[in-house]
Write a protein that binds this DNA or RNA. Structure first.
Length: 507
RNA sequence: GGCCCGUUCGUCUAGGGGUUAGGACGCAGGAUUUUCAUUCCUGUAACAGGGGUUCGAUUCCCCUACGGGCUACCA
């Protein structure tokens, strides 16, 4: 049977980077095995539903290249893929569980249960449970009897459906990442399956959908490990074969304290969301990796190596390579801290690996956004010189500002130290010398420059720093002759002349 | 608190009964680049603690400590 996995987020806000990694691992697993990757929106909590969150999820996945084979947008044989549109299905299965004696109606109100909790806390006792020990003293179809239950149902009383969890049973299952895991059923309580609003809880909806959608491997975050025995029980009650489970280690805050949170990321100045999100409630902008300048391939690569490794020394992977190399058998058990420095390094590596013309096209977009108009034909050359010098593509306009405009200022220290007005006529002669060049390739310029300095009876060091300063304003950057070549003969000559005038003014 | 899961350099990790415990990020130094970056080289730094088992344990077992997750009519 072919592998089928799903990513099943709740549209309660922007997709978190941890969620994105869960999606990634599912995607990689599916692709590795030639299976299907589905997206299912788990929107069964009306109270927490956030407008726009589903679109955000879809756009984030799409930006990273993790396109689902089936999902709410592109449909599929098991549509609908939004749980809110499937409530009749869950009700049917809840009823089936009641009829088979695995579940029951419960009429206790939330307030009553809350009161019970408060009383227990006052008495200094453990929070009370709704389970095999206590259910007969509460208001449910088991305790009340069929007749009373029917009466209440007929009168339209609010109810939930609870699973009748068996007493003192060991529930064991195999987790692909953690191995054999076992729980006592006494730890579980009679979990609500169907809420008073008629919608299912995660547990019911998840199990029913995974079964119906023929999911073979449930790959999700470690936060679900504790409720996995409940799901195992549910599969048993339905008499369904259960999928394989793999609980992924969490992504932790850089200091190791807890799951990676927006709070701590804000403090350290990096995003935790794939793309920008404007909170519809507060109107606040929460920044994303995309807008912070990350290449999606780099983010994906970084995330893949958080909790997984290929067992080789390779670190730089394309998405395609990840698909080939990925396996759940090499996923770690323990949580991994988020390290933004490493993420930046991955970004630089992916920048270097990209084709200059591709990068140039992306840079053009950035320039347009910033209102810089520029001859796009020159961009590949600029990108080639700049991409080894920046962590982010978006740093190029600033880092290489001298390619796009005359330098605004000149490095004062160097100017003072290296420039004297006597140099001016030398530069004028240099300009003339350059004018006679038949081509403006770096090698030709260098040759001409060397010959010129010989004629002038000077070492190249006498002019180089000043020449760089005249062209770029700063003493750092690509090799001078490369820079000149990209700038072009005309711009180079003009710029040297105009910078020289400004040097003298500054003196 | 209870239950579950975990613990190798600061971080991501490889490894696994006998290793100089390997790589990467970061940091530091050097070479190349008349600059910067890249590249290359070098250095830095780890098996949480205590008991077993064993000729030998970082590796297997137990305990402790620490960390994390869950403990809702949230997912």
């Amino acid at each position: 049977m072919s592998v089928r996995v799903r990513f099943a987020p709740s549209p309660t806000g922007p997709l978190h980077i941890g969620g994105l990694r869960t999606a990634l691992f599912n995607y990689l697993f599916a692709r590795h095995h030639g299976g299907q990757f589905l997206l299912r929106i788990e929107d069964t909590d009306q109270k927490r539903f956030v407008e726009g969150a589903e679109d955000y999820i879809a756009e984030s996945l799409s930006w990273c290249g993790l396109l689902p084979d089936e999902g709410p947008l592109n449909g599929g044989p098991h549509a609908p893929y939004r749980q809110s549109e499937r409530s009749a299905i869950y009700q049917r299965y809840a009823l089936q569980l009641i009829e088979s004696g695995h579940a029951y109606y419960a009429f206790d109100s939330e307030e009553e249960l809350e009161e019970r909790r408060v009383q227990a806390e006052k008495a200094g006792e453990q929070p009370p449970k709704y389970d095999a020990q206590t259910r007969m003293s509460l208001q449910n179809s088991l305790a009340l009897g069929a007749e009373e239950c029917k009466k209440r149902l007929d009168s339209g009383a609010e109810y939930v459906v609870r699973l009748a969890v068996p007493l003192s049973e060991i529930i064991e299952f195999e987790d692909i990442i953690r191995g054999q895991v076992s729980f006592s059923s006494d730890e579980l309580d009679d979990k609500v399956l169907l809420k008073a609003d008629g919608l299912p809880t995660y547990h019911l909806a998840n199990v029913v959908d995974d079964h119906l959608m023929q999911i073979t491997h449930v790959i999700r975050g470690e936060e679900w490990l504790s409720s996995c025995p409940l799901h195992v029980l549910l599969y048993r009650c339905f008499g369904w074969e259960r999928p394989a489970f793999a609980h992924l280690p969490l992504i932790l805050n850089p200091n190791g304290q807890g799951k990676l949170s927006k709070r701590s990321a804000d403090k350290l100045g990096f995003p935790v969301f794939p793309i920008n999100w404007t909170d519809p409630g507060s109107g606040d902008l929460w920044s994303g990796f995309r807008e912070s300048g990350f290449e999606p391939e780099a983010l994906v690569n970084f995330l893949a190596l958080l909790g997984w490794n290929p067992g080789t020394e390779q670190e730089i992977f394309s998405l395609h390579e990840l698909c080939q190399a990925f396996g759940l058998d090499r996923v770690h058990k323990s949580g991994a801290r988020f390290d933004i420095d490493k993420a930046r390094w991955f970004n630089q590596e992916h920048l270097k690996a990209q084709d200059d013309t591709v990068l140039a096209a992306k840079l053009m977009l950035i320039l347009e956004e910033r209102g810089i108009s520029f001859d796009s034909g020159k961009l590949p050359g600029i990108v080639r010189l700049l991409k080894e010098r920046v962590h982010f593509l978006a740093d190029m306009p600033e880092q290489g500002h001298y390619f796009f405009a005359e330098p605004k200022s000149f490095d004062e220290k160097t100017l003072k130290k290296k420039y004297k007005s006597e140099l001016r006529p030398v530069f004028e002669r240099l300009i003339q010398h350059l004018e006679s060049l038949s081509d403006f390739e770096p090698a030709s310029i260098e040759q001409a420059f060397t010959r010129f300095m010989e004629q002038e009876n000077q070492g190249p060091g006498a002019l180089m720093p000043v020449l760089r300063l005249a062209l770029a304003g700063t003493i750092q950057g690509p090799p001078v002759f490369e820079m000149m070549s990209v700038l072009g003969s005309e711009t180079t000559q003009k710029r040297i002349a105009s910078s020289l005038r400004r040097f003298d003014q500054a003196q």
